[in-house]
Design a protein around this nucleic acid. Structure first.
Length: 335
DNA sequence: AAAGTCTGCAACCGCTTTCTT
DNA sequence: CAAGAAAGCGGTTGCAGACTT
């Protein structure tokens, strides 16, 4: 069934409402109540479409509308509801008194969605977005090479060690103290890390990865500005124990991608894993001098050129999360 | 200081669903 | 039951103000 216009649009005003128009609409509704939108504009003396009047009332003039910034609780509620309902804005709004669907939709698109992306979470699926990472090129890169990770000369490469330090100490003059206090437990826990990394490497070796041709660039050059106190939560997860569940959860997606793309590369990962398991010498890890904090090298972090801006932001943000003052590295890796 | 770019949000568009006659 | 009107809904657009160069 075709739908005719709700009113004759010729000569009707569009665009932002003026105070005078708002007043007319308010006064009319106060007397006659909302509804009957087709005849309302004429009766209220408004040169507006009835639909426009209804929207103005429901989204702005209604007295029960709560204005101002969304609270943390509201934001969390929106995220939770969205993870269940998706873009059912009216259903979400029905559970947030005083908020309109339009307002929630706008807030989602301008704030929450970006925040989730910044945290490496897909705003549609609400799951981590490691699927976007080109692990192959990452692990072959200078700093995030699996061989380096597991090999004594380089593992716990300076940046990883520095990350550990930074997690426990936000200022550089505390680093030595941290190392003195934490190295013994780290010696034990790093053994556990090794097992987990080895296990993760096994997972990786059976996980198809996007080819470098498809992901020629990974992280944007502006990561060169990343300072020593900004580290990658997800990257760290890849190096530390008990966070490797992220990879298995993405495996089906990788497999689906692999089935569509014959150029997936696994050999590099397999080689890295084989080399690492042969060459590993744990003691030398701790004998490797701590490097002075330096910005993460942008050469290892490139963004897939085919990704969207938001996705690019996701990649970049993977390396940017605030480290709480109270964060304890030991607790984290023992967790 | 000016021009260009970005951001947030109100409002619109067009489709679907529900209601009324 | 069918047709048309009204309401609901989600995606998109346009613009004002903020920010950057």
């Amino acid at each position: 069934m075709g739908r005719s216009p709700c009113c004759d649009k010729n000569g009707l005003k569009k665009g932002p409402w003026t105070q005078e128009e708002d007043l007319k609409l308010l006064e009319y509704i106060q007397v006659h109540g909302p509804g009957n939108w087709r005849t309302l504009p004429k009766n209220a003396g408004l040169q507006r479409c009835g639909k426009s009047c209804r929207l103005r009332w429901t989204n702005y003039l209604r007295p029960d509308i709560k204005r101002g910034r969304f609270s943390f609780e509201e934001e969390e509620t929106i995220i939770q509801l969205h993870s269940v309902m998706g873009n059912k804005w009216s259903s979400i709004a029905a559970r947030l008194p005083g908020r309109t669907d339009n307002e929630i939709k706008n807030y989602w698109n301008t704030h929450i969605r970006k925040r989730l992306l910044r945290n490496g979470i897909d705003p549609v699926t609400h799951s981590p977005r490691l699927d976007l990472l080109d692990l192959s090129s990452m692990l072959n890169s200078a700093q995030f090479n699996l061989s380096n990770l597991l090999n004594l000369h380089t593992l716990v490469n300076p940046d990883v060690l520095r990350l550990a330090t930074l997690l426990a100490s936000s200022s550089s003059n505390q680093e030595n103290q941290f190392l003195n206090n934490q190295m013994n437990p780290m010696n034990q826990t790093l053994n556990q890390q090794l097992q987990n990394c080895t296990s993760m490497a096994a997972n990786l070796s059976s996980t198809p990865l996007l080819s470098q041709e498809n992901h020629s660039q990974y992280f944007s050059p502006n990561l060169a500005n990343t300072n020593g106190q900004m580290v990658d939560e997800n990257m760290l997860s890849a190096f530390l124990p008990n966070n490797n569940d992220i990879l298995p959860c993405q495996r089906d997606q990788y497999k689906a991608q692999a089935s569509e793309n014959s150029s997936f590369e696994r050999s590099n990962i397999q080689n890295d894993y084989n080399n690492a398991s042969q060459n590993f010498n744990f003691d030398s890890v701790l004998s490797t001098p701590m490097s002075s904090p330096t910005p993460l090298n942008s050469s290892s972090t490139l963004v897939n050129s085919s990704t969207t801006e938001d996705e690019t932001e996701t990649y970049c943000s993977l390396f940017k999360f605030e480290i709480p003052e109270s964060f304890e590295f030991e607790d984290f890796i023992n967790n």
